[in-house]
């Protein structure tokens, strides 16, 4: 198992390098001079040149690339062009909020999605199945900012069950939890919609396999078949999808954080975008990619735990 983890770790290095390269290219190759973008059209040539020098834009592109790569690998993401604080500090302050939100959403997604998917599979083409299909499609159709605002209108503005502003008081974890509910549900519902669909189809496939039929013929109780034999095998693709979905979840967390006015990476990136904070943006992208590579890694490893074939 350890060997497997190490192997996967090594295998993710090229991906990470490729991602860093892509990030670098994305920021540079896109037409337009960042200096003009930051200072505006009316900036004098002198101030533009000064800014270019400050950003290192006047140097040979290869040198910029290796500089960026070297610093990124050492964890040095530079200094924000707007706040003049280290990018890493800004991100480190916001990251925990986003991670908590994402984990809560994943938990909600799995807790709703897996049982509902199994239920739908067991009632294939029945009313439950059709209803689940419709609801999951509905869940998939909501852009999170729409579902977030709708939840906000119903539960905060009308029913006054939750606060409108989601900024938790530091140290007060009950308040934090209370304010986490709506954002986490917003994100979790979309996740649940994905999980339902995958669980259903993978469960259907597993239930059709020979060994399940054999177990049934041998008189193993239905409940045992479903939970012990069926679900444990059906979960393998679900894990992959959960892993894949984290990318979407991270993207959607941006919108959720804006709607609920929560601190997190989302607010950081939006302000970096609107203020054209290039170093910040670059840093954010590196962090996002790193998160995704890590999640893929975790997915692969948990895959190894569920699917005995991978370990060997």
């Amino acid at each position: 198992m350890i060997a497997f983890i190490i192997r996967r770790l090594l295998a993710s290095i090229p991906t990470l390098l490729a991602v860093l390269t892509l990030v670098f290219l994305l920021v540079r190759v896109v037409p337009g001079d960042p200096a003009i973008a930051i200072l505006g059209d009316r900036a004098t040539p002198e101030t533009l040149a000064a800014l270019r020098a400050e950003l290192g834009l006047d140097r040979w592109i290869g040198a910029q690339y290796f500089d960026f790569l070297g610093h990124a690998i050492l964890g040095d993401l530079g200094t924000s062009m707007v706040t003049h604080r280290p990018v890493w500090t800004e991100i480190a302050e916001a990251l925990p909020h986003t991670i908590v939100l994402t984990l809560a959403a994943m938990a909600i997604g799995c807790l709703i999605g897996i049982p509902a998917g199994v239920w739908a599979a067991l009632n294939r083409n029945g009313p439950v199945d059709v209803l689940t299909r419709l609801l999951s499609l509905l869940g998939l159709s909501f852009p999170v900012f729409v579902s977030g605002i709708f939840l906000l209108i119903v539960f905060a503005l009308q029913l006054h069950l939750f606060p409108v502003i989601g900024n938790p008081r530091p140290g007060d974890w009950i308040d934090g939890l209370h304010k986490l509910v709506l954002p986490a549900v917003t994100l979790g519902v979309v996740m649940a919609a994905y999980v339902v669909r995958v669980t259903r189809s993978s469960m259907l496939q597993v239930l059709g396999e020979d060994y399940i039929r054999t177990a049934r013929a041998k008189g193993v109780p239905r409940r045992a078949i479903i939970w012990r034999h069926g679900l444990s095998n059906a979960l393998i693709p679900v894990v992959t999808v959960v892993g894949l979905y984290v990318g979407i979840l991270i993207g959607n967390s941006v919108l959720t954080e804006i709607v609920f006015n929560r601190p997190g990476l989302g607010k950081v990136i939006v302000s970096a975008l609107t203020k054209r904070d290039y170093t910040m943006l670059q840093g954010m992208m590196v962090i996002y990619c790193f998160l995704i590579v890590v999640v893929n890694l975790i997915t692969d490893i948990s895959y190894g735990f569920i699917d005995p074939r991978v370990k060997q």
Binding site: I250, G251, V254, Y288
Partner: peptide
């Protein structure tokens, strides 16, 4: 693997 919304935002 890059979150598409964020890619879109940046682009």
């Amino acid at each position: 693997s890059f979150p598409s919304l964020i890619l879109g935002m940046i682009m």
